[in-house]
């Protein structure tokens, strides 16, 4: 236990240190989700508002902004995943023989399946990025090339399987967060007897808002046909522009 040749190693290798990494990276992801949700809500305002927002994200700090953000996001996610997998493995090893009769006093199911809700969210993440960021679907890519992010989003939700997977992933994310958000406070040493109830309430409220907020979009689009007409009109204009060899829609066509 010599005074650290490498304090960061000490920190990472200790149980509490690694949990603090999970909490800080988790907190970053929690802030990100809140921001992402607020941005997404612009979809209900108008196609221009949404497209402007997308444009802003891609051009802030001369286009550096989004890359800085993406790199931090990737580092946080990777650290979160490595730490939680290592912690989960160590926790299993700490009780090699299970009880013949298992029982639980207070811990809700969501708190006991964090690794599974987390891994489902990870699979969803990969899918989501291929879907809307890399855009493996060529018709979505064309819409994005013409800066029609609103129409792209609506077009992406015309598939029932996509919508159902989205809802399932959000349900598990909600489960992950209903334990995770409150956990941040405890792990960082900010929870006391007096604040415990309030933190639990905040955690549940936050995860519920995230769940309802995010799923409201695919549900409105797929089940209530929101934006379908405008999306199809935009698509037709974009196709016409492609035929005409243009790389941008003519100005007035951006109007509602």
């Amino acid at each position: 236990m010599s005074s650290s040749t490498c304090s960061i190693c000490h920190f990472w290798q200790s149980s509490i240190g690694k949990k603090i990494v999970v909490a800080l990276t988790g907190a970053y992801l929690v802030f990100f989700l809140a921001g992402h949700l607020v941005g997404n809500m612009l979809i209900y305002q108008s196609s221009e508002a949404f497209n402007h927002y997308a444009e802003f994200l891609h051009t802030m700090l001369h286009g550096w902004g989004i890359w800085i953000f993406r790199i931090i996001m990737l580092v946080a996610l990777v650290l979160h995943i490595i730490a939680t997998i290592q912690l989960t493995a160590a926790n299993r090893a700490a009780r090699p023989r299970r009880y013949q009769r298992e029982a639980t006093m207070v811990a809700p199911r969501s708190s006991r399946m964090m690794i599974w809700s987390g891994l489902t969210v990870l699979v969803f993440f990969v899918f989501h990025i291929l879907h809307y960021t890399v855009r493996v679907q060529s018709d979505l890519q064309v819409l994005a090339d013409f800066k029609q992010n609103w129409a792209m989003t609506i077009a992406g939700f015309q598939n029932l399987l996509v919508v159902l997977f989205y809802i399932l992933a959000m349900a598990l994310l909600c489960s992950h967060l209903s334990h995770g958000v409150g956990s941040i406070f405890q792990t960082l040493g900010l929870r006391t007897k007096k604040t415990a109830k309030g933190i639990q309430l905040f955690s549940k409220a936050y995860s519920l808002i995230i769940f309802v907020g995010f799923i409201s979009i695919p549900i409105s689009v797929y089940f209530f046909g929101m934006g379908k007409k405008e999306m199809e009109a935009t698509k037709a204009k974009v196709e016409a522009a492609v035929q005409a060899g243009l790389t941008e829609l003519p100005e007035q066509d951006n109007a509602h």
Binding site: M1, Q13, S14, S15, I16, K18, K19, L87, A90, N91, A93, A94, R95, T104, M105, V106, A107, S111, R112, M114, H179, G182, S183, Q186, T187
Partner: peptide, 18 residues
């Protein structure tokens, strides 16, 4: 105390409050 706790092979708290 924390280092000894880790060395003994106890698991890591996940805030279950059991």
């Amino acid at each position: 105390m924390v280092r000894q706790m880790d060395a003994e092979g106890f698991g890591n708290c996940t805030n279950l409050y059991e």
